[in-house]
């Protein structure tokens, strides 16, 4: 077998060689923009939820599991997450004309006081997308498997309730996530709140 060795031709690149490399760099840049666009499109994709009876319209993350069977209007969970499934929940409570958000928060705290490790972290004012005022409460608790024969380490969960009173009912929007990924997942709540209409 013979070998053809070309030596000394590499000092300067020809026009075609230069453009071959430029095109690769352009392709890399365009491809990267497409990749970021695909990522954003998939991660921020939403599904529309409308409940005419409760007068609620919202967009929740695509591929999350919708559930309307509990004591809430609806709940969506990210079942693709290992461990605790990040959850968004919208619930309502009837209130009287003299009930304040403070009363509702205290009732929620009392109701959850038997939950393992339940601790309120903070309470502060919250401005809703329609510029009405609400209140937000951050808390933490521990989730463990109810089956004592299953092996596993309990999970520390962090939650945030956003509460407002409208049309004679308290609307409670809860966002609950594994404490280790709570901050990372918090933009999901922000996006959800920006689409929520009630």
């Amino acid at each position: 077998m013979s070998a053809i060795e070309i030596v000394g031709a590499s000092d300067s690149l020809s026009f075609r060689q230069r453009w071959s490399h430029y095109l690769v760099l352009i392709f890399g840049l365009v491809g990267f923009i497409i990749a970021v666009n695909l990522r954003d499109g998939a991660l921020n994709a939403t599904t529309l939820y409308i409940n005419a009876q409760a007068g609620i319209r919202a967009e929740y993350p695509q591929n999350w599991l919708l559930d309307e069977e509990g004591d809430y209007i609806f709940r969506v969970r990210d079942l693709s997450q290992a461990g605790f499934n990040t959850t968004l929940q919208v619930a309502t409570r009837p209130v009287s004309s003299i009930t304040t958000t403070r009363n509702v928060l205290d009732a929620l705290t009392l109701g959850r006081s038997q939950t393992l490790g339940y601790t309120v972290l903070s309470e502060e004012q919250y401005i809703l997308p329609d510029e009405s005022t609400g209140i937000t409460m951050s808390y933490t608790f521990v989730v463990s498997d109810p089956n004592p024969f299953l092996q596993g380490v309990p999970i520390v969960v962090e939650g945030q309730d956003i509460l407002t009173i409208k049309r004679g009912q308290a609307i409670i929007i809860s966002f609950i996530s594994d404490a280790t990924t709570f901050d990372e997942n918090l933009p999901i709540l922000t996006r959800f709140m920006s689409t929520l209409e009630f």
Partner: peptide, 16 residues
């Protein structure tokens, strides 16, 4: 691109 005297400029990006 190295050895062809007149490389087709799109060939390298096509291989990538």
């Amino acid at each position: 691109v190295r050895f062809n005297a007149r490389p087709f400029p799109v060939l390298l990006v096509a291989t990538i």
